[in-house]
Design a protein around this nucleic acid. Structure first.
Lengths: 128, 128
DNA sequence: ATGGGTGCAAAGTGTTTGCAAGTAT
DNA sequence: ATACTTGCAAACACTTTGCACCCAT
C-alpha cells in the first residue's frame, strides 16, 4: 500500500467537500477549490476525490450524468429529483440485514448496497 | 406525444435485449444487432434503447462505467460484482412501502428507487 | 405526403492518464 | 533522496446530436 501525503491540494479538496451540505459533483468541487487556488487542475481534483474516497474520508453517490460526493461517512440512501437534479440525503435507516441476507443466498461477499430514490421535489411537481 | 413507428431496427434492438439473460450494455446490444444487420449504427441503437425504455418495454440499470439494459419489466434490485463487472438480478422483493414512506416524509412524488448491491462473486473472491 | 427514423460523423460529457517538473516526508 | 503529487493536455469511454436522406404510416 502506498504512503499518502498531505498536500495543500488534497486539503483544499477535502475542505471543499466538507464545506458543502449538498452533494456536489466533481466539477463543482473543482470550481470551489479553483476559487481559492486558481492553479489547481481538474485532474488533481478528480485524483484527490478518488483517493479520499478510497481512504474513507468521503463517500460518493452514483447518480446518472455525474457522480456526486458526500461528506457523510455513514451509509445512507439518496433522493434524486428528476426535475432539477438535486440530490438529498434520505432519513431512512440503512438496511444492513439485506446485505447479509443476499450474501447467504448468493455466496457473494456483499460490501454494501446503494439506493437512490427517484422522484420530483415539491417545487418541480408544481412547475409541471 | 409522438407517434412511434415500428421499424426493422427497433425490432432488432428489442429482440436483442430480450434474447439475453444477462444485463448487456448499449454497446453489447449494438454488437449483437450488428451481427444481424451490418448497417445499423450506434446512434440508432442508443436512440432505440432510450425510446424502448420510455415506452416501458425494457428497463435499464444504472451501474458505474456504463448503463445496462434489462428485459424484465418488474422493479427489482441488482447485484454488481466489483471484480468482474457482472450484473445479476436479485431475488429479494421490491420494497414499495419505502417509496410511500419517503413520499409522505418529504412531500416529493416518488416514482421508484434503484438499489444496487456491491460485492464480489464467489469466483472473484477466490481469485483474490 | 409527411413526419418519425436512419446512418454517419462530429461533438459532448465526465473522467482518466502520460509525462516532466515539483514537493512532502 | 525518494517516490508520491501536480499541472497540463491529450486520450478515453460512453452517449447525444445535426444533417440529409429514407421509409412506415
Amino acid at each position: 500500500m502506498k504512503q499518502l501525503r498531505n498536500t495543500r491540494q488534497r486539503q483544499l479538496v477535502l475542505a471543499a467537500v466538507r464545506a458543502r451540505r449538498d452533494h456536489p459533483s466533481a466539477d463543482q468541487i473543482y470550481l470551489d477549490v479553483r476559487a481559492v487556488d486558481g492553479r489547481i487542475s481538474r485532474g488533481t481534483v478528480y485524483r484527490n476525490l478518488s483517493i479520499l474516497e478510497e481512504s474513507g474520508e468521503i463517500l460518493h453517490v452514483k447518480v446518472p450524468t455525474a457522480d456526486r460526493y458526500d461528506n457523510r461517512l455513514d451509509l445512507h440512501y439518496h433522493l434524486l429529483c428528476m426535475g432539477c437534479g438535486a440530490v438529498k440525503d434520505v432519513e431512512l435507516p440503512y438496511h444492513r440485514e439485506l446485505d447479509r441476507e443476499l450474501a447467504e443466498k448468493t455466496g457473494y461477499f456483499i460490501a454494501r448496497h446503494r439506493t437512490v430514490f427517484e422522484g420530483f421535489c415539491p417545487e418541480c411537481r408544481r412547475r409541471k
